[in-house]
Simulated scan of single mutants.
Amino acid sequence: MPPADSGPAEGRPPAPAEGRPPAPAESRPSVPATITREQLERVIRRASDLQFRSSTAVDGSIGSRDVVQIGAEVGLEERHVRQALAEVEAASLLPATPADTGLARRLCGPAIVSASRVAPGSPDDIDVNLEPYLSEKELLRRVRSRPGRSLWEPAAGLVPQMRRGLDFGGRGYTLAKARSLQVVTEPLENGWSLVTLTADMTNVRTEHLGGWFGGMTVGGIAGGLGLTLATGGGILPILGGVAIFSGCIGVATVSARSTMAKFRQRMELSLQGLLDRLESGEDLAGAREPWHQKLPW
């Protein structure tokens, strides 16, 4: 009988283990030394797909626990992964933006500015945090209140108007210049909430349109009449007056649109700044002004 095989013969490589044999080193894909941010996202997405393909549902979805595990394996903190999950979930909960149509919108652009952010805390916690800030720091007053929704307007009265007009602290009171501010909070999982701030600036747009168009209309009419009287009438002076009037209207439209765009950017910056403070968990309710800063002088 031939002797039992005690191992591989000399000079002969060992037989591959059961299963797929390892690919030769020269045939393996090369790994780049550095990758871009976009490539990193593609790598993580592809690697997670390969690893969790067997554990996904029929529709190809991945459970939130698996997403957290993927994040941990690539070095992401769990709180950041869960916040990202909350933001993805919040995308379907964004409230509808109020309708803004008509000639004024075509001339000056939209008068509605909305910003959303996922912030820690329940809707009640966020409301308790925002209420004293909006009333004392931004000089707004609550006019409507429902669970998860509230509507604010500029506070009336002599003292709030004087504080906004004098503005000793240089705050600007941008939010108080809007017609109204709507606050909507939607609860999410794991102690997070989606906060949406919507400012209605139709009053500002109307003021800009009225100011520019009023001034330019008067200037156009005066220029047209002056040209007509100076030349003694006739068809050409009338056409010239119409051209002057049309030019003034065009200047008014461009100027009003530019002014409104700048104010819209300032309003959006204010909303985003407030959401930044909510996202960081800042205690807005505790940051109250001293009594002497509330005086109008």
Rank of each mutant, 00 (worst) to 15 (best):
Val159Leu: 05
Lys177Phe: 05
Ser150Tyr: 05
Leu94Trp: 13
Ala72His: 11
Gly165Thr: 08
Ser145Asn: 12
Asn129Thr: 04
His80Asp: 07
Ala156Gly: 15
Gly102Ser: 06
Val118Gln: 01
Arg82Gly: 03
Asp127Ile: 08
Pro147Ala: 04
Tyr133Val: 03
Glu136Asp: 14
Met162Pro: 08
Ala119Cys: 03
Arg144Lys: 14
Asp66Met: 10
Ala86Cys: 02
Ser145Thr: 13
Leu140Thr: 01
Cys108Ala: 13
Ala156Cys: 10
Val159Glu: 01
Leu166Cys: 07
Leu107Thr: 12
Leu93Lys: 07
Pro98Glu: 12
Pro120Gln: 02
Pro110Asn: 11
Pro95Phe: 05
Leu175Arg: 09
Glu153Ser: 13
Asp127Val: 05
Leu139Tyr: 05
Arg171Tyr: 10
Arg164Met: 04
Asp100His: 10
Ser114Asp: 09
Ala155Trp: 00
Glu77Pro: 07
Val88Lys: 06
Pro110Cys: 11
Pro147Phe: 07
Ala84Tyr: 00
Gly172Lys: 08
Tyr133Pro: 04
Ala99Val: 09
Gly109Val: 12
Lys137Asn: 14
Leu175Pro: 01
Arg141Asp: 14
Val68Phe: 05
Arg141Ile: 14
Pro98Ala: 10
Arg106Ser: 11
Glu78Asn: 04
Ser92Thr: 13
Arg141Asn: 08
Pro132Tyr: 04
Gly71Cys: 05
Arg163Tyr: 03
Thr97Val: 15
Gly71Gln: 08
Val81Phe: 00
Val81Arg: 00
Arg82Ser: 00
Thr97Ser: 12
His80Lys: 09
Glu89Thr: 08
Ala104Thr: 09
Ala155Gly: 06
Thr174Cys: 09
Ile70Leu: 13
Ala115Pro: 12
Ile126Cys: 01
Val68Trp: 03
Gly75Glu: 13
Gly172Met: 09
Gly71Met: 08
Pro132Ala: 06
Ala176Glu: 11
Leu139His: 02
Ala90Pro: 04
Ala176Phe: 05
Leu139Lys: 03
Tyr133Lys: 02
Pro154Thr: 05
Pro120Thr: 02
Asp127Glu: 12
Asp124Met: 02
Val143Cys: 01
Arg82Glu: 00
Asn129Glu: 04
Ser92Asp: 15
Leu158Arg: 14
His80Val: 01
Asp125Met: 00
Val74Asp: 13
Gly170Gln: 02
Ala155Asn: 13
Glu138Gln: 14
Glu131Gly: 09
Glu89Ser: 06
Arg146Leu: 14
Gly121Glu: 02
Asp66Tyr: 12
Val128Ile: 07
Arg65Met: 09
Leu140Arg: 01
Thr174Pro: 09
Ser150Ala: 10
Pro160Ala: 02
Glu78Phe: 00
Leu140Trp: 03
Val68His: 01
Pro154Gln: 05
Glu78Leu: 03
Leu76Cys: 03
Val67Tyr: 07
Met162Leu: 15
Thr174Val: 15
Leu158Gln: 10
Leu139Arg: 02
Arg141Thr: 13
Arg141Ala: 15
Gly170Asp: 02
Ala111Arg: 09
Met162Ile: 12
Gly172Ser: 07
Ser116Val: 06
Val67His: 06
